[in-house]
Design a protein around this nucleic acid. Structure first.
Length: 146
DNA sequence: TGCGGAAAGA
DNA sequence: TCTTTCCGCA
């Protein structure tokens, strides 16, 4: 019955992303073997196909807007096999990240959150260095020493 | 729309 | 431990 579950694969060769240090442990999430919500959000954000659902807020590094809360909840529910998932429940999980300093809310902006970028790390591109500066300036990259 | 306590589930 | 579910409150 897991047939209906969405399985996202990691993109490759699509430029490079700057991830917070805490995001690096996502490769092998210790403690819980289940996918974590922040990682799922990060996955969605780095894919063009979900830009109508969730996207980085241009101009504000680390800030993202959930354009379609219902759809994000739907996708998350799919991944976790929780058909009853909705934005109310998803956002509660998001709120637990405040104290853990993974996320915080952008007050005044609807459906807008921000990743904690205090401890950024730049994983070096394994294949080849990005030659097109415009590629890293699409809002997915974050300036060092920010 | 957003917050956070409380309890339950995996 | 990280959610999921439920809910009163602002």
């Amino acid at each position: 019955r897991a047939a209906g579950c969405l399985s996202l694969s990691r993109p490759r060769g699509t430029g490079w992303l700057a991830f917070p240090a805490w995001a690096c442990k996502a490769e092998s999430s210790p403690g819980s073997r289940q996918i974590q919500l922040w990682h799922f959000i990060l996955e969605l954000l780095q894919k063009e196909e979900f830009r109508h659902v969730i996207a980085w807020q241009q101009g504000e590094y680390g800030e993202f807007v959930i354009k379609d809360p219902d759809e994000v909840a739907r996708l998350w529910g799919r991944r976790k096999c929780k058909p009853q998932m909705n934005y109310d429940k998803l956002s509660r999980a998001l709120r637990y990240y405040y104290n853990k300093r993974i996320l915080h809310k952008t007050k005044g902006k609807r459906f807008t959150y921000r990743f904690n970028l205090s401890q950024l790390v730049f994983p070096p591109p394994p294949v080849s260095a990005p030659r097109t500066p415009t590629r890293v300036c699409t809002g997915t990259a974050v300036p060092a020493g920010g």
